[in-house]
Each structure stands twice: as structure tokens, then as C-alpha cells.
């Protein structure tokens, strides 16, 4: 990937800011998401809640199914490949996906290496629990970062934890002297120049979204107030009582995330939220996959 291509890929993520990216499994759902105001959709065969329920090995979706969704909507279409599975990523690039999510939601294919994303023309988004993880993914070529959260649970606690940790680590870097930054780079296990960028700019060099467990307009507003630049909603929409209404409400909540009166209106009468599982009740922590 040339520098120019990487810049264009980071710039696409900039256009998604202030928006909501929704998980969809069929062209019909993709249309509902687009009409509700999704700025992009994530095409996958099963939403994380069902992946979690089904167990077993979870892989990249059928390209035919992804193509069906590409044809159904005009907004960017993303799809997931397994961590380290560069052949799946090559296939997704071949069908001209707009963004690849190298995702811990699927079963990891490599327990040591992530994909060398610099070898691809299409952009990648990767999950991160802390600043070191985020900068390692960026160093590998990720053009966008999201919190890992805990997918498919409807429990926002992990997304909050990851976002708070990343923001606090960023703030710490901005107050460090140069010699301290060398040590910070060592401790974070990332290249010095990326640490310097964060210290000087007070932000990641790429866009940072919240993901994992977002189920209500209030969840989305919480993540935005904690510093997210946009929100992924996975199981939260199509596992709820009234997907179209909930999706549209979350979209508006992300735009006006500090207006509590509007958020109150948006939260009214949305039908049943996804049932959800508490973090402490689950056996498989997907966020622990890939570091």
C-alpha cells in the first residue's frame, strides 16, 4: 500500500465520523439500516450475539451474501475477516469491500501475527483495548480504530473501559517530556514516532470509534461524550423489538450526544432492547483475542 492510498483510507474514516455503523445480515436489513441513517454497514452472516450463542468456529461471511448487501445499499460496506487471516482479507479486497474489520468477533486464525495491512489497498479497521494495542494496529496499517468492547452482549462496560483507558493514556502522553516518551514507547511496545504523534496532537493518528455492547441511544451518547468519534452498533439493533426506530434514534443520539432533553425524547417508546448478558456471566471474552 502506498502512502497516498493509506491517506485516502484514513480520509474515508474521517467521512464516517459522527455516524453509526450497523451490523446487518441480509440486504433487507442493510436497507433498513441505510434508511435509518447508518453511515456504513457491516455485512456478516450472523450478528455477534448469535455467533456467541452458536459457539464453534466463526469465519468470514460468504462473498455472495456480502455482494448482495453491496448491491442493496449505496453507503460504504464493511466486512469482517479473522485476526491474522490474510487470505480472507485478500478475498474481501477482491470483491471491492470498502473497509475490512480484522475482528476478534470471529475465531482468530493466527495467535501470534495480525495481518500485515500495509500489503492491501483497501482500508482496515481494528479493535483495541488500550493505547498500545491501538498504535500496534496502526503501525501494521490499520486506517481506523475501534474499541473492542465485548461484542454480542449488550453490555457496554467493556467499551467504556477501553475508551476511558485509551483517552487517559493519550492525556498522559501529552504531558510527558521527550525522554519520558522514549520510555513510554518501550512500555507501550510501539514505535517512538507514533508515540510522538499522539503526544503532540493529543489524539490517535486515525479515527477512533466505539464498539461493543452499544444497545440504546444513551449508550451511544455515553460513548461519544467519552471521546468516541462515532459508534458501531452490532447486535443492539436487529436483536431489539423495533430495529428501524431504534436505529434512527441511535443515529440522532450520536449527532446530538450532549442534548439530554433530545436524548430523553429519543429514548422513549423504542420497544424492547436486546436482552443482553452481563460481562461477568460470559465464559468467552472475545476482547482478549489478539493483542
Amino acid at each position: 500500500m502506498t502512502n497516498e492510498r493509506y491517506t485516502l483510507n484514513k480520509e474515508l474514516a474521517q467521512m464516517l465520523k459522527g455516524g453509526v455503523i450497523m451490523d446487518v445480515t441480509t440486504p433487507q436489513q442493510a436497507k433498513i439500516a441505510e434508511e435509518a441513517g447508518a453511515c456504513a454497514v457491516m455485512a456478516l452472516e450472523r450478528i455477534p450475539a448469535d455467533i456467541r450463542a452458536a459457539g464453534g468456529v466463526s469465519r468470514m461471511s460468504d462473498p455472495k451474501m456480502i455482494k448482495g448487501i453491496q448491491e442493496a445499499v449505496s453507503i460504504p460496506v464493511m466486512a469482517k475477516c479473522r485476526i491474522g487471516h490474510f487470505a480472507e482479507a485478500q478475498i474481501l479486497e477482491a470483491i471491492e469491500i470498502d473497509y475490512i474489520d480484522e475482528s476478534e468477533v470471529l475465531s482468530p486464525a493466527d495467535d501470534v501475527y495480525h495481518i500485515d495491512k500495509t500489503q492491501f489497498k483497501v482500508p482496515f479497521v481494528c479493535g483495541a483495548k488500550d493505547l498500545g494495542e491501538a498504535l500496534r494496529r496502526i503501525n501494521e496499517g490499520a486506517a481506523m480504530i475501534r474499541t473492542k468492547g465485548e461484542p454480542g452482549t449488550g453490555d457496554v462496560v467493556q467499551a467504556v473501559r477501553h475508551m476511558r483507558l485509551i483517552q487517559s493514556q493519550i492525556r498522559r502522553l501529552t504531558s510527558m517530556s521527550k525522554d519520558e516518551l522514549f520510555d513510554a514507547a518501550k512500555n507501550l511496545q510501539v514505535p517512538y514516532d507514533l508515540v510522538v504523534y499522539v503526544a503532540e496532537n493529543g489524539k490517535l493518528p486515525v479515527v477512533n470509534f466505539a464498539a461493543g455492547g452499544v444497545a440504546t441511544p444513551a449508550d451511544a451518547a455515553l460513548m461519544m461524550q467519552l471521546g468516541a468519534e462515532g459508534v458501531f452498533v452490532g447486535s443492539g439493533i436487529f436483536k431489539s423489538g423495533n430495529p428501524a426506530k431504534r436505529a434512527a434514534a441511535i443515529v440522532q443520539a450520536v449527532t446530538n450526544y450532549t442534548d439530554a432533553r433530545l436524548l430523553a425524547e429519543l429514548s422513549e417508546d423504542l420497544g424492547e432492547a436486546m436482552v443482553g448478558i452481563n460481562e461477568s456471566e460470559i465464559e468467552l471474552l472475545m476482547a482478549e483475542r489478539g493483542k
Binding site: 467521512m15 464516517l16 455516524g19 435509518a36 441513517g37 453507503i75 434512527a248 443515529v251 440522532q252 449527532t255
Partner: peptide, 13 residues
């Protein structure tokens, strides 16, 4: 940004 999103939000708001 996304024109479909902005159009919808302009309407809704």
C-alpha cells in the same frame, strides 16, 4: 460525510 445520513438527519431534526 454520507449524503443519505445528513439528508435524513436534516429532516428528522
Amino acid at each position: 460525510g454520507e449524503s443519505t445520513v445528513m439528508g435524513k438527519l436534516l429532516n428528522d431534526l
